[in-house]
Nucleic acid binder design. Structure first.
Length: 577
DNA sequence: GCCGTTTTCGGCCCGACTGTTTTCAGTCG
């Protein structure tokens, strides 16, 4: 995928143009970069299929930039970019990562002190050469030094699941502060993005200043980036930043809409407002100087002729068009989930795992009608996978537990499955005569993940053709930020899933989220059914369902696309057929 | 450089905060 490489080049070019104080072009290049970053399809493939014309279909990309893309695909370089780099041989994208450093300051420091990279920057800052410069000062120099320190410890983006517990804590702390009337989390957290840069809170307060004072004095504050009358920004010791905005109550909806983003969605909605002779800002929708909406998001969208849409789909990726056609999906909700079918137990003998009984307790607490126990199987030695014989024994055990539930008139059922391993040749490690005795079978790849594309695709398709296999777990195998997806012809996988009636899993583990939103949307469009599972290895992990739901919603999935919204009898029928 | 429910030309999302040049440019989201 050349998308990210090209995005980087266009971002770079935007900054060079910014330094030259060229009007409007930096914005155009930046938009092209953002568009490419968000683009899921390989730009090289798009070019191969449809040439320059197809490239120009990409939002924010016109003739000139598509020429640059073509040039890069052919030569690996963009001449204009090379020219800029020669004129100003500095590591711009590193330098602007320092908080407070932008293109203009970087250029000034190069011209005056010859600063080319972060190392040079640190050297001149430590030697107090920055403060005396025209346009700089003591504080700027100090901030640069501190920014450099933070950068050294920077861990990049955070996994949504890693920071959510902290976010919920801080939310409660703010909510319980007596000055706070209304509070919501906004930004990419509200949109359920799988990784988070920083966290945004939005508040209506009796006295904004008191909220600001309270906020910047949290125990966990490491640095206050800024604090004004309505806006403050801090870094907490966990390593991420939190922004807080206080807005008037009458603007709460428009502010929430604005700070939820995405940026692209906002630009699109503002354009629509402009088209109707209105102005949309975080303060409301205005006709001239008259405010016509702002208190709630519904009101704001309504004022510009759109229905409210769920934060998870606000990516300017077709939702506006769908809204205009009154064709928005009714997204699946957590409360519609009736059970979790990818749950492990302590049957392999691993002590940290919970018993089947404990897993059931938790599932009942969550209001589920059923749970599926699907332990690993024998090939996976490290997970103490069960043999066929052990699975049969487990089957008897679960039968007895189910009888107990019936005796106690508990409307809850345990389904019995397993998570078999798809071996290199597409067969699985448990014999069919055992598999057919189970309520359902999950199969997943847990080995040889670096197979070439064709072999890996064939391997999965062969597994899907096994009539005993109902579900493919974590179908693409990615670990966010750590391991790429398998080489896979996903279109073929979808065709085969459709043909064989195999269900693809949406694995809720914050480290996986596999399928991801993009692939979920593709599966939905093909009519492939999915299931949202947690892959729990301990009972608390059953709570991870919310992240799978978030991803499903980002993929526009509706109740009918997700089979664990079905009651147990219908689910069992589904497996039998 | 991009784009079009007003436009193929003439606009481009827009407001908050900081630090410094003391009236506003630079940066950020």
């Amino acid at each position: 995928m050349k998308n990210q490489e090209l995005a980087k080049i266009f971002n770079d070019m935007a900054r060079f143009l910014e330094m030259e104080a060229v009007a409007f072009k930096p914005y155009a290049y930046q938009r092209a970069a953002i568009s490419l970053e968000a683009l899921q399809e390989d730009v090289g493939d798009i070019y191969l299929k449809g040439g320059i014309k197809a490239l120009m279909e990409i939002p924010g990309i016109g003739k000139a930039i598509s020429d640059h893309i073509e040039e890069y695909l052919k030569t690996g370089k963009v001449k204009q970019h090379e020219k800029f780099k020669k004129q100003l041989p500095i590591e711009l994208d590193d330098l602007v990562r320092v908080e407070g450093m932008g293109a203009k300051k970087a250029r000034a420091l190069y011209q005056k002190l010859g600063v080319k990279n972060l190392k040079d920057l640190e050297k001149v800052a430590k030697a107090h050469k920055i403060a005396p410069l025209f346009g700089f000062g003591e504080k700027t120099e100090k901030n640069i030094l501190q920014g450099l320190e933070f950068l050294k410890r920077d861990k990049g983006r955070f996994l949504l699941g890693d920071i959510m517990p902290r976010v919920k804590e801080i939310y409660e702390k703010l909510e319980n502060f007596n000055q706070v009337k209304k509070i919501s989390v906004a930004g990419s957290v509200r949109r359920q993005k799988e990784t988070i840069g920083d966290v945004d809170f939005l508040i209506v307060a009796k006295n904004p200043k008191k909220v600001m004072d309270f906020f910047v004095k949290f125990d966990s504050v490491e640095k206050v980036w800024g604090k004004g009358g309505t806006k403050a920004s801090i870094r907490i010791k966990d390593g991420f930043d939190i922004d807080l905005r206080v807005v008037p109550e009458r603007s709460y909806g428009s502010a929430l809409q604005y700070f939820t983003g995405s940026k692209e969605h906002n630009i699109a909605t503002r354009r629509i407002a402009i088209g109707k002779g209105l102005k949309l800002s975080e303060y409301g929708v205005f006709r001239g100087s008259k405010m016509i909406a702002g208190k709630t998001e519904e009101e704001v969208y309504g004022a510009i002729g759109l229905p409210w849409m769920a934060p998870e789909i606000r990516e300017n990726d077709g939702e506006i068009e769908a809204a205009l056609k009154e064709n928005l999906p009714k997204l699946v909700e957590l409360k519609e989930i009736k059970g979790d079918l990818h749950c492990h137990s302590n049957w392999g003998g691993i002590e940290e795992r919970d018993s089947i009984e404990k897993m059931c307790e938790k599932a009942i607490e969550l209001g589920y009608e059923y749970i599926g126990i699907s332990d690993h199987t024998e090939f996976l030695k490290i997970e103490q996978g069960l043999t066929g014989k052990q699975l049969l024994k487990q089957k008897e055990y679960i039968k007895k537990l189910n009888e107990k539930f019936r005796e106690r008139n508990t409307n809850f059922k345990i389904l019995h499955g397993c998570e078999t391993n798809i071996l290199n040749d597409g067969s699985v490690d448990i014999k069919d005569e055992i598999l057919e005795k189970l309520d359902y079978v999950i199969a997943g790849v847990h080995s040889s993940m670096k197979m070439p594309k064709k072999e890996m695709t064939d391997r999965l398709i062969k597994a899907m053709k096994n009539s005993n296999i109902d579900i493919i777990s974590h179908p693409t195998g990615r670990l966010i930020g750590r391991r790429d997806e398998y080489q896979l012809d996903f279109d073929k996988i979808l065709d085969s899933a459709k043909e064989t009636g195999t269900i693809l899993e949406i694995n809720s583990s914050p480290y996986r989220l596999d399928l991801n939103g993009f692939n979920i949307r593709r599966a939905k469009e093909r009519g492939v059914k999915m299931i949202i599972n947690t892959d729990s290895h301990r009972k608390e992990q059953l709570n991870l369902m919310e992240y799978g739901i978030g991803q499903a919603r980002r993929g526009w999935a509706e109740k009918a696309d997700i089979i664990n919204t079905l009651p147990v009898e219908e689910l069992m029928d589904f497996f039998k057929n």
